[in-house]
Amino acid sequence: KELVLVLYDYQEKSPREVTVKKGDILTLLNSTNKDAWKVEVDDRQGFIPAAYLKKL
């Protein structure tokens, strides 16, 4: 599985998104959309803007 590093805090703005903190390391589920990547956070799945993430 692929991991990503969170570069900036992000507060979810819709039910399809998830809230993350800078420095979190998350499982990347889908990065086919260049604008928003799907990740898993504490058994929740949701989207975060790709600009907030860096592949490890």
Rank of each mutant, 00 (worst) to 15 (best):
Leu5Asn: 00
Lys34Ile: 11
Thr19Asn: 06
Ile25Trp: 03
Tyr52Leu: 10
Glu17Cys: 09
Val18Asn: 03
Leu5His: 02
Asp43Leu: 09
Leu3Met: 11
Phe47Ile: 06
Glu12Ile: 14
Leu7Pro: 00
Ala51Val: 12
Asp9Thr: 05
Tyr10His: 04
Ala51Tyr: 13
Gly46Asp: 03
Asp42Gln: 11
Asp35Lys: 13
Lys13Val: 08
Val20Phe: 07
Tyr10Phe: 07
Val6Cys: 06
Trp37Val: 02
Leu3Arg: 11
Ala50Ile: 08
Arg16Cys: 15
Val18Tyr: 06
Arg44Cys: 07
Lys34Tyr: 11
Thr32Glu: 14
Lys54Thr: 09
Lys38Phe: 15
Val39Glu: 00
Val39Lys: 01
Leu29Pro: 00
Leu3Asn: 05
Asp35Met: 13
Ser31Thr: 09
Phe47Val: 07
Val41Leu: 11
Pro15Val: 09
Val39Pro: 00
Glu40Arg: 11
Glu17Gln: 07
Asp24Asn: 08
Ser14Met: 07
Lys54Cys: 15
Tyr8His: 12
Leu29Ile: 14
Asp43Met: 10
Leu56Asn: 01
Arg44Trp: 15
Gln11Ala: 12
Lys22Ile: 04
Lys38Gly: 04
Asp35Ala: 12
Asn30Lys: 06
Lys38Thr: 08
Pro49Asn: 05
Tyr10Cys: 04
Leu26Pro: 01
Lys55Asn: 05
Ser31Gly: 10
Gly23Trp: 05
Leu56Trp: 08
Lys34Phe: 10
Lys34Asn: 12
Asp43Gly: 15
Val39Tyr: 02
Leu53Arg: 01
Phe47Tyr: 14
Lys54Tyr: 11
Pro15Phe: 08
Leu3Tyr: 15
Asn30Arg: 07
Leu29Ser: 02
Ala50Arg: 12
Lys1Gln: 10
Glu17Leu: 06
Ile48Ala: 05
Thr32Tyr: 10
Ile25Gly: 01
Glu17Pro: 09
Ser14Arg: 07
Asp42Ile: 08
Phe47Ser: 04
Trp37Asp: 00
Ser31Ala: 12
Val20Asp: 01
Phe47Asn: 04
Val39Trp: 02
Pro15Thr: 09
Lys21Arg: 13
Ser14Lys: 07
Asp9Glu: 04
Asp24Ser: 11
Ser14Thr: 12
Asp24Val: 06
Asp43Pro: 03
Leu56Pro: 01
Ala50Val: 11
Leu5Glu: 08
Gly46Asn: 03
Leu26Ser: 01
Lys54Phe: 11
Thr19Trp: 05
Leu3Trp: 14
Ile25Ser: 00
Glu17Tyr: 07
Asp42Pro: 05
Leu56Ser: 02
Asp24Ala: 12
Thr32Gln: 13
Val4Pro: 00
Leu26Ile: 13
Leu53Asp: 01
Val20Gly: 03
Gln45Ser: 10
Lys1Gly: 09
Asp24Ile: 06
Val6Trp: 03
Tyr10Asn: 02
Ala50Asp: 02
Ile48Gly: 02
Ser14Trp: 09
Glu40Val: 11
Asn30Gly: 07
Leu3Phe: 14
Asp42Thr: 07
Arg44Met: 07
Thr19Ile: 05
Leu3Ala: 05
Val4Ser: 01
Asn30Val: 08
Thr19Met: 05
Pro49Arg: 05
Phe47Cys: 12
Asp35Asn: 13
Phe47His: 06
Asn30Pro: 03
Thr19Arg: 06
Lys22Pro: 02
Tyr52Val: 12
Asp24Cys: 09
Ala51Glu: 13
Leu29Gly: 01
Ala51Gln: 13
Asn33Pro: 05
Lys13Tyr: 06
Arg16Thr: 13
Asn30Asp: 15
Leu3Ser: 06
Ile48Tyr: 01
Leu7Ile: 09
Ile25His: 02
Asn30Thr: 08
Val18Pro: 02
Glu40Met: 14
Gly23Val: 02
Ala51Arg: 15
Asn33Tyr: 10
Leu28Ala: 02
Lys38Asn: 06
Glu40Thr: 08
Gly23Ser: 02
Ala50Tyr: 04
Asp9Phe: 04
Asp43Phe: 10
Leu5Gly: 01
Asp42Trp: 09
Ile48Phe: 02
Asp9Ser: 08
Leu29Asn: 02
Asp42Lys: 12
Gln45His: 08
Phe47Ala: 03
Pro15Ala: 11
Arg16Leu: 14
Leu26Tyr: 04
Lys34Arg: 12
Thr19Pro: 03
Glu17Ile: 05
Lys34Gly: 10
Glu2Pro: 12
Val4Phe: 03
Val4Ala: 07
Ile48His: 02
Thr27Phe: 11
Phe47Trp: 15
Glu17Arg: 06
Ala50His: 05
Thr32Ala: 13
Lys34Trp: 10
Val41Glu: 02
Lys55Val: 11
Lys34Met: 13
Val41Asp: 05
Arg44Phe: 09
Asp35Gln: 12
Leu29Glu: 02
Gln11Met: 12
Leu7Gly: 00
Thr32His: 11
Gln11Ser: 12
Trp37Leu: 01
Gly46Lys: 05
Ile25Ala: 00
Val4Leu: 03
Arg44Asp: 03
Gln11His: 13
Lys21Phe: 10
Val20Ala: 13
Ala36Gln: 14
Tyr10Leu: 02
Lys21Gln: 08
Ser31Asn: 07
Val41Cys: 09
Asp9Arg: 03
Glu12His: 09
Lys22Leu: 04
Tyr8Met: 14
Leu53Ala: 06
Tyr10Glu: 00
Glu40Asn: 05
Asn33Phe: 10
Glu17Ala: 08
Glu2Leu: 13
Glu2Gly: 11
Tyr52Arg: 03
Glu12Tyr: 07
Lys21Ser: 09
Lys34Ser: 13
Arg16Ile: 13
Asp35Ile: 12
Leu28Lys: 01
Ile25Asp: 00
Tyr8Arg: 14
Val20His: 03
Val20Thr: 03
Glu2Thr: 13
Phe47Lys: 02
Leu53Val: 09
Glu40Leu: 14
Glu17Met: 06
Glu12Asp: 06
Leu3Thr: 07
Lys22Thr: 05
Leu3Glu: 05
Pro49Glu: 04
Ser31Met: 08
Lys54Val: 13
Thr27Ser: 08
Thr32Val: 10
Val20Leu: 04
Lys22Cys: 07
Arg44Val: 07
Tyr8Ser: 09
Asp42Ala: 13
Lys1Trp: 11
Gln45Leu: 07
Lys1Ser: 09
Thr19Tyr: 05
Gln45Gly: 05
